[in-house]
Amino acid sequence: MEALNAGQLDLGLMRPHALGGEFDTALLATEALMLAIPAAEAANWPLEPTLADLHGKPFVMYSAHEARPFHQMLSSRFEREGVVPDIVEHIGQVHTMLALVNAGIGVALIAEGATRLHFDGIVVRRVETEPVRMVGAWRRDNDNPILGLFKREIVPSFQAG
């Protein structure tokens, strides 16, 4: 298990937490960012899309409140690349986001793991951008015995896969 120090931690991928908290973290997964496209529109999109391909296009974005980590991550990537998608909806749950993509409302960016949901009517393509880091976090002073078991037995299984 590779613990990350505060300098390595991508706080944009964690849920909001109490300020001044003392956390330990572990990288659980690194996944590609995937573009979910309505199948009927797939021919209009590149086979190897980039963030720039989203400029001005109808886009289903993560909610700044309900899905803050992904909202912040994508907002910062769009800003860095000078990309301004046409945000048609803000959504908190990936299931709802994919349902809207399936309905033809727009496209969405999802972590590769969400492709396991297998929504019919959606084509997914890997986006040429840095991957998404999934980080687990817990309070250092947490004395729950199950946490020790989690760190010894469960976290390494994420990193081995």
Rank of each mutant, 00 (worst) to 15 (best):
V107Y: 07
N102W: 14
A18M: 07
A103H: 07
P85A: 01
A43M: 12
V107C: 03
R133I: 01
V123F: 08
R68V: 04
H90K: 12
G106C: 02
G148C: 11
T50N: 09
P49R: 01
E130H: 06
F78M: 06
A52S: 05
P49Y: 05
S75D: 08
A64F: 15
R68A: 08
M73F: 14
A111Q: 03
L54D: 01
G106W: 03
L149I: 10
M1T: 11
E112W: 08
A42W: 03
M14A: 11
P46N: 02
N5L: 14
A108C: 12
D24S: 11
M14H: 05
V124D: 06
L147K: 09
I37R: 00
P46D: 01
F59N: 00
L117E: 01
A114R: 05
K151P: 05
R125A: 01
L35Y: 06
V135N: 10
G136K: 03
I110V: 09
F158P: 09
H17T: 12
A6C: 10
V60A: 06
P131L: 05
V124C: 09
V60H: 04
V60D: 00
R15A: 14
G136C: 06
P131M: 03
A114P: 03
R116K: 15
M1E: 12
M97N: 07
A103N: 13
H17R: 15
V107W: 00
L35Q: 02
R80W: 13
I105E: 12
N44V: 15
G136M: 14
L117G: 12
F158V: 02
N5S: 08
T129L: 04
A137S: 12
F158R: 04
R77M: 10
G106S: 08
M73L: 15
M1C: 15
L149Y: 15
R140Y: 09
L98M: 03
A108T: 04
A160K: 13
L4Q: 05
E128I: 04
E22G: 12
A137V: 10
E48R: 11
L13F: 09
A108Y: 03
F78E: 02
E112S: 04
